[in-house]
Computed example of a mutant assay.
Amino acid sequence: MPGPAPLDRDTAPHDPAGTRPVARLQFRAIPQARHWLLRAALLCVAVLALGLTAQLVPGGSAAELGVDQDLSQHHAALLTGVAMVLNVVFGPAAGVVLVAAVALYLWVVRRSLVKAVAFGVVACSGWVASEFFKLIIARQRPNPALLFDPLSPETGSNSFPSGHVSFAVALGFALYFLARGTRWARIAAAAAVLVALVVAWSRLYIGVHYPTDVAASFLAASAAVLLVAGLWNRFAPRILERLPAAVPLRSTRS
């Protein structure tokens, strides 16, 4: 997606008298799609349409449950181990630790508070989006009693979309944005897609989501990232320029 400015372009606007720099950092614009607000809105509409259809179409959930039931009957030790590890790693507690660790590295080691905040906001946007749609759709999770081998029985009206998958998608975007413009960009993009797909599979394998739940997660997280990128690029420079000069936003080493 085309961005409004190169990721590593220095911007240091000065006051009208030209006596001192106002922004003491290298502002990093998040890659931003054209018509980002419209695209984000269309993706949100698609998520809502998918969720309402899944809720209102008679027998829809029962038909989707067949996918979970089929996977539940063919569990294997290795695959179960992978699924359960992903269940923890991309869960809320471990996810917060993961995002905080990367953000802390960017702030302390790379000396870029701006980059750390941008990474954290993008990575967490998937969670926020999933919780927003969960409240609206309020779809019940698959009944673990109907599964042959329920690995992590969960109940409640928070099935649509999957928070784990939404987080995996947004985290993939955030890591790709960090790697963009380097030799690691393609590897980061491919890894992000692969991990998101594997996490989506794991949610069905464990039996805690329907196929439409994980499919909608890709749309919801993408909408959140589009929205965050557009808002960040529009408002972050103005906010940063107003911060006191004592705030250590970025060192000259990075």
Rank of each mutant, 00 (worst) to 15 (best):
V198R: 00
F90G: 01
Q140K: 09
C124F: 12
D149L: 12
F27T: 08
F235N: 10
T53S: 13
E154D: 13
I187L: 14
A83L: 04
G156S: 14
V108P: 00
V169L: 07
V199T: 12
T252E: 11
R238L: 14
S162E: 06
R34F: 02
V228Q: 05
P2V: 10
K115H: 10
S61H: 08
S159V: 09
S152E: 10
F119A: 03
V122F: 04
F148Y: 14
A138Q: 15
P92D: 08
S162C: 11
A100I: 04
A41Q: 02
L147T: 11
G230A: 10
G181E: 11
I30K: 01
F235G: 04
V199M: 08
R250H: 10
Q26E: 12
L78W: 14
L146N: 13
L79F: 10
P161E: 09
G66P: 04
A93T: 13
C44R: 00
D149A: 14
H164W: 08
Q69F: 07
V169D: 02
S112Y: 08
V22L: 15
L50T: 11
S112K: 04
L25V: 09
P150T: 11
F119W: 06
S72Q: 05
V99M: 02
D15F: 04
D8P: 05
L147D: 08
L249R: 00
E154V: 11
H14E: 14
W127D: 07
V22C: 04
V45L: 15
V109H: 11
L43T: 09
A5H: 12
R186E: 07
G60T: 03
R141H: 09
A229F: 00
V57E: 12
L71G: 04
G230S: 08
I136P: 02
A236D: 07
V121C: 01
V96C: 07
A138V: 11
G51R: 00
I137N: 02
L227Y: 03
A229K: 00
R203Y: 02
A174H: 06
P153R: 05
A103L: 10
W36H: 01
S130E: 07
A246I: 09
Q26R: 15
G207H: 07
G59I: 08
L65G: 12
R242S: 12
A5Q: 15
K115N: 13
F27L: 15
F218V: 06
A94K: 08
Y105W: 15
V225P: 01
V128G: 01
T212N: 12
A123H: 03
P58E: 11
V89H: 09
R20L: 05
L48R: 06
C124Q: 10
